[in-house]
């Protein structure tokens, strides 16, 4: 019986993973774009990205575009796999295969 992934299940982290997973592999989203999409605050988003990065589900790339720092968050292969399993588990719950 598959288990829900506790790291992904938190609502904001679920949104972050869903947004990143909607992109092609190795493509990421800028922090500001992710903030707008999820409706999170800077601090909250940063903390949850850190949790996902510690679990190996996302990688964070920091670069300078001109003089502006730019942070890009990318879902790793492990993160994509975990997200796919989490979604499959949610679907199983809805189908009544799990209680």
């Amino acid at each position: 019986m598959a288990e829900l992934d506790d790291i992904i299940h938190q609502p904001l982290r679920l949104k972050i993973m869903a947004a990143l997973n909607a992109l092609p592999a190795a493509t990421g989203l800028e922090f500001s774009r992710l903030k707008k999409l999820t409706g999170a605050t800077d601090g909250n988003l940063g903390a949850h990205i850190e949790t996902l990065a510690k679990a190996g589900y996302v990688s964070v790339e920091k670069a300078f575009v001109g003089k502006k720092p730019q942070t890009t968050v990318i879902a790793t292969a492990a993160g994509r796999g975990a997200f796919a399993r989490h979604v499959a588990t949610l679907q199983e719950i809805i189908a009544g295969k799990q209680v």
């Binding site: 949104k15 997973n21 909607a22 999409l37």
Partner: peptide, 15 residues
Amino acid sequence: ASAALADIDDIVQRV
């Protein structure tokens, strides 16, 4: 679970 999947669909559409 349905609510979580709806959240996922919503964010995917927005992306």
